[in-house]
Amino acid sequence: METKLYTITVFSENTVGLLNQITVIFTRRGLNIETLSVSPSALKGIHKFTITLLSTQDVVEKVVKQIDKRVDILKAYYNTDEDLVHQELALYKLATDKVLEHGSVEYFIRKYNIRVLEISNDCTVFLKAGHYAETQALFEELSQTIGVLQFIRSGRIAITRSKVERLSDMLEGMRKIQEKKNENRKF
């Protein structure tokens, strides 16, 4: 089976130890997480994990089911890049004197659509948002020309292209189950 990059999205309650519960499922199968990004979601009290994994569909499907099974996980699903709009952020710290020596910041802004976040006597910080290949290309060009003092790239963040928001469907379904249970208790 073909190995490719899958993006796993996990919605969870915001409880202590959730990340560990998710990562052990990768650990026991000997899988490497490529990138990981965690933040509160649009819904209050619900956290969203975006995880990328290089694997086959068979494996990613089983991993997602085992994540979804955990009690505190609201919903877990996976997508390939075609289904997603995705992005990563990268920061590049450069020596300001080297930047000035190189001459053209405009060149980088036009070619790579960077933003300059900071300029001091010592250092200059570029920010670039993009896909992995794009942030990587800039890193390589900067390394060869100006030299990079520090480099950091975020994990992937992604949203699906489809109109359906799977989490809200799920929560609606669960609300109905709760109503039914409460009614049963009344009578």
């Binding site: 505190d72 996980i73 609201l74 189950i177 709760q178």
Partner: peptide
């Protein structure tokens, strides 16, 4: 307890 919203 008879309901947890993240658990079916």
């Amino acid at each position: 307890c008879n309901f947890i919203r993240s658990y079916i």
